[in-house]
Design a protein around this nucleic acid. Structure first.
Lengths: 336, 336
DNA sequence: TTGAAAGCGATACCAC
DNA sequence: GTGGTATCGCTTTCAA
């Protein structure tokens, strides 16, 4: 039976050099003559040598791992974001550690586990990490980046879609389409991003001369996603607003279908604008007008911030706002 | 400035014992008196000691990591499967390493990277790993489990939905609904699972007395997912079959919408049965009759197989077929 | 440029 | 039951 694994020692022997030289040859770290370097590389090649990342990480006090914290991956927007993050992480030569959480205590446990693997960084797409655990990360010089989170943690960077600008675009679109009575659809226990969109929408309407006390109806779904939107539509008993803005795409699709069930169609009976631009919102049966979140850009910037902070762990917190775009579709068509 | 990390050494000092005892206290491996054990545990608690998984893994030759290989996570079925896998991996005390691949060479590189982290196992949900790299895993005693892959690799276990049974259920449903001319909708370059469903469907029709040479139309989309189904519907110029079975849900939803666009409705103009039972297929606008894949069960069994093989690396390959269920909805209603 | 040697942090075997 | 010690595989000073 062959030896299980080939180590740097083996390569060294074969190349007739010491372990130290092998390390240099592979990490191009420290000086080495081109000739021996090639000799080592060939030996490594021939033996099929692979660095043991556990040993390497132990020594360097840092692994090539990046932790990603997510929730409800089955949600189309979140899975798209995860996909982009994985892509970006791999592109930069790291390996992703992914954990799905369902509450704040999971968050703490996960963050701690990540530190135990000496990750090079952590990306949080769900939950709001308590200061205490963040400090543990900071002490270990592990950068933490939040995506679409409330950007109020010192020494943590944030990348967020520009919810405020998105809400303004929505308000302008609805106003110029001639809507007069407005609705804001969100779920109870919404994320920070959702609430921000609602506040900014209200603000933008006021700026546009709308008396929001009278003309803005708040519709709160009792459940997340499509099912929440559907039920909100079925349960809706006030007068139907003619311009509705919705915290996310899933909710909006559910609402649209619920209203169809009741015989109400957009844009005939009401206008509807969603957020996220999930694949479904562009499909024939929905054609939802929506704000587009640029997940590619978000992922790209998140990694950039992460590596930036790795170099300079104590720099002040950065917050980046990623541009959103209004996609005009059927539920609130472009004007003029 | 405090010391960056607290090690077993520190705990040992504080508890007035040796490193060895600390290790025993935490791993409950080797004998130790209850009294000292508690003393050590308290010391560890007080210092906030966390095991360094890199060091632990290096020594044990095995990390608490499990690698997962995925593709196109944004697809609703795949993201659901990933979600269940993560859940199951975490439930069993492991940490998931996730990599998204887009081709076979990515697969090899990824598998190799996983071995470099000395993972406890690998789950492959996309691609077909070449024998050579699988051997590397086997040599390192790293179990490999494939999900919905062609189960033909020695020393690798497989968990698959029972595609054959699903196709039979679909055929029976369409036959008993009175369909006479059949269609099979798939994409070019489909997965093994997709092709299996097609073969089994054809077989089941023949067993039901259908002359498939004459009465089974093969429809091949040029693209995956919703867009592929949509285009296949628009491009379809032969006579429309009255009973269509489709390789997956996304394709089916696209086809449904494409046909709507052309003024054809299910179940009035044709029956349609999909596979996967994604959330979308149950929504108001689709109401797709479909086979349900039990992802919870699949994930559960995959992990069970993984840990089973870890104990006994050279046992013969196991293949498990997970039961599928026909969900009767609008596009091919239940008979009688 | 190269090699010897001291860690990195934890585990497990072997004496006591 | 407990402590010393070799070991896991690699990196990185420090001399030569």
């Amino acid at each position: 039976m062959a030896k299980q694994t080939v180590t740097a020692e083996d390569v060294a022997k074969r190349a007739g050099v010491s372990r130290a030289v092998v390390s240099r040859a592979l990490s191009s770290n420290g000086s080495i003559s081109p000739a021996t370097k090639e000799r080592v590389l060939r030996a490594a090649q021939e033996l099929g040598y692979q660095v043991n990342f556990l040993a390497q990480g132990l020594n360097r006090q840092r692994s090539h791992l990046i932790g990603v914290i997510v929730a409800r991956i089955a949600d189309p927007f979140r899975s798209r974001l995860l996909e982009e993050l994985l892509h970006e992480i791999q592109r930069r030569g790291y390996q992703a550690l992914v954990t799905e959480i369902s509450g704040e205590q999971d968050l703490v446990a996960t963050l701690r586990r990540f530190t135990q693997f000496r990750v090079s960084g952590v990306i949080v797409t769900s939950g709001q990490p308590p200061q205490a655990i963040v400090n543990e990360c900071v002490n270990l010089h592990i950068p933490v980046v939040g995506i679409n989170r409330d950007p109020d943690i010192p020494l943590v960077d944030f990348v967020c879609s520009d919810n405020r600008a998105g809400a303004q675009l929505a308000a302008e679109q609805l106003l110029s389409a001639g809507c007069r009575r407005f609705g804001w659809l969100n779920t109870h226990g919404s994320t920070w991003a959702g609430r921000r969109r609602g506040e900014a929408f209200s603000q933008a309407l006021e700026d546009g001369g709308v008396d929001t006390a009278q003309q803005l109806q708040i519709i709160m779904a009792h459940e997340e996603g499509y099912a929440g939107g559907w039920q909100a539509a079925l349960a809706h008993d006030a007068e139907l607003p003619d311009g509705i803005f919705c915290a996310n795409a899933q909710l909006a699709c559910g609402f649209l279908d619920g209203m169809r069930q009741r015989g109400k169609q957009a844009p005939h009976d009401f206008h509807l604008i969603g957020f996220d631009n999930t694949p479904q919102s562009g499909q024939f049966s929905y054609q939802l007008t929506t704000l587009h979140q640029n997940t590619t850009e978000i992922a790209h910037r998140a990694l950039t911030r992460l590596l930036e902070r790795a170099k300079n762990p104590l720099q002040p917190s950065h917050v980046e706002w990623v541009k959103v775009e209004l996609i005009h579709r059927h539920t609130s068509p472009r004007i003029g």
